[in-house]
């Protein structure tokens, strides 16, 4: 869906993005992870030509974006930013209707679409349609921002740290909303964040940027396995690396094939080791029972196996 081919961007002496080559497959969520100033936003903004590359090219659907008319290109790509950027003098409905109106949809179709979208992002249309942005909480505003980006049903969504300014609870709510929307609509999403947890929660593929260079890419699991050295290890956090790894492994992989005891806390078969650890801590139990499901015959997960060196 998106291909970066040897893309660089310089600002005077400074190299914000340095020869990045990256492919984002259609229908996947690709998370750009990196510290502040590592060039994530710059790289993303080259997709909808808010930034032009100094060298290299960006292809969307196989076509070089440099050949597209910027405004038309952007109307076909959803764009969500951290500070939301809702137009403060327009009501929520008008904000969401921005792109459909630019595309010349008729009023009735726009109105229907606004209601559908508010529903999709989990806001009551009747309650929120006519509010002004300053009458929304941070989380509600970002839901509206997401709805605005989805308004004309673009196949591609660019999201630049969209949840970073929200409190943890709201952030988790929006993350799961985004996952649901992704499952429902199958959009291709390029998602920028500096938050490792968020990246691991959302990513189908991860791309790690450091000082403008792409230092690692692949699935979360493969990245965590290889992250023994250099910038990736630093970005993930040395101490939490093992913890993050647990999130990428299924709990059933370490289960002993014992008959599950009925008095133990139950863990679903598709849970990760991280969830297993949290359940152990929460229940104060060193063993968990995992019921049989599909090919997995059922078993018991032991604390000792969890912490054993692998």
């Amino acid at each position: 869906m998106i291909r970066f081919e040897g893309v660089s961007r310089r600002y005077g002496e400074q190299v914000a993005v340095d020869r990045v080559t990256l492919e984002v497959p259609r229908g996947s969520i690709c998370v750009l992870l990196g510290e502040s100033g590592s060039g994530k936003s710059t790289l993303m903004r080259m997709v909808n030509r808010l930034v032009e590359p100094s060298a290299g090219r960006v292809l969307v659907d196989g076509r070089d974006v440099a050949g597209a008319e910027p405004e038309a290109l952007r109307r076909g790509i959803g764009y969500v930013i951290q500070s939301v950027g809702l137009f403060p003098h327009w009501r929520v409905g008008d904000n969401i209707a921005t792109v459909p109106r630019l595309l010349g949809w008729d009023a009735a179709r726009v109105a229907r679409r606004v209601d559908v979208l508010l529903d999709l992002v989990g806001l009551d249309a009747a309650l929120f349609r006519d509010r002004f942005p300053h009458e929304l909480s941070g989380g509600q505003a970002q839901r509206v921002g997401l709805a605005r980006a989805l308004a004309a049903d673009p196949p591609l969504l660019l999201m630049d740290e969209p949840f970073s300014a929200l409190d943890p609870g709201t952030r988790r709510g929006l993350q799961s909303a985004l996952r649901e929307i992704h499952a429902e609509t199958g959009k291709t999403i390029l998602f920028v964040t500096h938050d490792v947890e968020e990246a691991l929660t959302l990513a189908d593929t991860l791309a790690v940027l450091d000082q403008g260079r792409l230092v690692a890419q692949g699935s979360s699991a493969s990245l965590l396995q290889e992250a023994e050295k250099g910038p990736v290890r630093r970005i993930f956090g040395k101490e939490s690396l093992a913890f993050h790894r647990l999130a990428t492994l299924p709990a059933s992989s370490l289960a002993r094939p014992e008959d599950a005891r009925q008095d133990l806390p139950m863990l679903p078969a598709d849970a990760s080791l991280k969830q297993a650890l949290m359940l152990m801590l929460a229940e104060g139990s060193a063993c968990l029972a995992i019921p049989a499901e599909g090919a997995f015959p059922g078993g018991t997960l032991h604390w000792a196996d969890l912490v054993a060196p692998r």
Binding site: A72, L73, R75, Y79, I81, L86, T98, L102
Partner: peptide, 10 residues
């Protein structure tokens, strides 16, 4: 941010 969003929507 408002200007960025406006440009981003095309």
């Amino acid at each position: 941010a408002v200007l960025d969003a406006a440009r981003g929507t095309g």
